[in-house]
Lab assay of single mutants.
Amino acid sequence: MQFKLIINGKTLKGEITIEAVDAAEAEKFFKQYANDNGIDGEWTYDDATKTFTVTE
């Protein structure tokens, strides 16, 4: 399945899409990606669109 991350950071904005087995695997990848890029904010997930959003 495809999952999307929308980044609304103070210094980094954009979107990335990955293939993952389930939402838990996608969330783990996205949170590591955000951590690696210094993004720390509020997370939301929309199951209907398979979209995670992080907002700083």
Rank of each mutant, 00 (worst) to 15 (best):
Asn37Phe: 08
Lys28His: 07
Gly41Asp: 01
Ile18Asp: 02
Lys4Glu: 04
Ala34Thr: 15
Asn37Trp: 10
Phe29His: 08
Ile39Thr: 04
Thr44Asp: 06
Glu56Lys: 09
Val21Lys: 15
Asp36Leu: 14
Val21Asn: 09
Lys10Pro: 03
Lys13Tyr: 09
Ile7Tyr: 09
Met1Cys: 02
Gly9Arg: 07
Asp22Gln: 14
Thr49Gly: 08
Lys10Asn: 03
Gln2Phe: 12
Glu56Met: 05
Asp22Asn: 07
Glu15Asn: 13
Tyr45Glu: 01
Gly9Phe: 12
Gly38Ser: 05
Thr44Asn: 13
Phe52Glu: 00
Glu27Ile: 10
Ile7Thr: 10
Val21Phe: 08
Phe3Leu: 03
Gln32Ser: 06
Ala48Gly: 12
Ile18Phe: 12
Ala20Cys: 03
Val54Phe: 05
Thr11Gln: 06
Gln2Asp: 15
Thr53Glu: 05
Ala20Asp: 09
Phe52Thr: 01
Thr55His: 11
Asp46Ala: 09
Phe30Gly: 02
Glu25Val: 05
Tyr33Phe: 05
Thr51Ile: 08
Ala20Gly: 11
Asp46Gln: 10
Lys28Phe: 06
Ile18Pro: 00
Leu5Tyr: 01
Leu5Cys: 02
Ile18Trp: 10
Gly9Met: 05
Asp36Met: 10
Asp40Ser: 06
Val54Glu: 00
Phe30Asp: 00
Thr55Val: 06
Asp36Cys: 03
Asn8Ile: 05
Asp46Val: 06
Val54Asp: 00
Ala48Gln: 14
Tyr45Cys: 01
Asp36Gln: 08
Lys13Trp: 05
Ala24Val: 09
Phe30Tyr: 12
Asp46Ile: 06
Thr53Asn: 08
Glu25Ser: 11
Gly14His: 14
Ala48Lys: 14
Glu19His: 11
Met1Trp: 04
Phe52Cys: 01
Phe3Glu: 00
Thr49Arg: 09
Val54Gln: 01
Glu25Tyr: 11
Glu25Asn: 15
Ala24Glu: 06
Glu15Pro: 04
Ala20Trp: 04
Phe3Thr: 01
Met1Lys: 08
Thr55Glu: 07
Ala48His: 12
Lys50Gln: 07
Gly9Asp: 06
Glu27Val: 14
Gly41Ser: 02
Thr53Tyr: 10
Gln2Arg: 10
Lys31His: 08
Glu42Met: 15
Val21Pro: 06
Glu25Cys: 02
Asp40Ala: 12
Ile18Arg: 13
Glu42Trp: 15
Glu42Pro: 04
Asp46Lys: 06
Trp43Val: 07
Lys31Val: 11
Ile39Ala: 04
Thr11Trp: 05
Glu42Phe: 06
Thr51Phe: 06
Lys13Gly: 10
Thr55Trp: 15
Glu15Phe: 10
Glu27Trp: 04
Thr53Lys: 13
Phe52Ala: 01
Leu5Glu: 00
Ala26Asp: 00
Thr44Lys: 15
Lys10Thr: 06
Ile18Met: 05
Asp22Lys: 04
Ile39Glu: 02
Ile18His: 09
Ile39Gln: 11
Glu42Lys: 15
Phe30Gln: 00
Thr53Met: 15
Ala34Ile: 05
Phe30Asn: 00
Thr55Leu: 12
Thr17Met: 12
Ile18Ser: 05
Lys31Gln: 12
Asn35Pro: 02
Tyr45Phe: 03
Lys4Val: 10
Lys10Gln: 04
Asn8Asp: 09
Glu42Ile: 09
Asp22Ile: 04
Met1Glu: 12
Thr11Cys: 04
Ala24Gly: 10
Asp46Phe: 03
Ala34His: 01
Glu19Leu: 11
Lys28Gly: 07
Gly9Ala: 10
Asp47His: 09
Thr11Gly: 14
Ile6Gly: 03
Glu56Ser: 10
Ala26Glu: 00
Ile7His: 06
Lys10Ala: 10
Ile16Met: 09
Thr49Ser: 07
Glu27Tyr: 14
Glu42Leu: 07
Ala24His: 04
Phe29Gln: 07
Asn35Lys: 12
Asn8Tyr: 12
Glu19Lys: 03
Ala26Thr: 01
Thr44Ala: 15
Ile16Arg: 09
Asp47Met: 11
Asp40Pro: 13
Lys4Thr: 07
Thr17Asp: 09
Glu56Gln: 11
Ala24Arg: 02
Ile16Gln: 04
Glu25Thr: 15
Glu42Thr: 12
Ala26Tyr: 00
Thr44Gln: 14
Asp36Gly: 14
Thr53Pro: 00
Ala48Val: 11
Gly9Ser: 03
Trp43Thr: 01
Tyr33Ser: 04
Thr55Gly: 03
Phe3Asp: 00
Phe3His: 07
Lys31Cys: 03
Asn8Leu: 11
Asp36Ala: 13
Thr17Cys: 02
Phe52Gln: 00
Thr17Phe: 04
Asp36Val: 14
Ala34Arg: 01
Gln2Ile: 10
Val54Tyr: 02
Ile7Leu: 12
Tyr33Arg: 02
Asp47Val: 07
Phe52Met: 10
Lys4Cys: 02
Glu42Ala: 15
Ile18Thr: 13
Gln32Lys: 11
Lys4Arg: 09
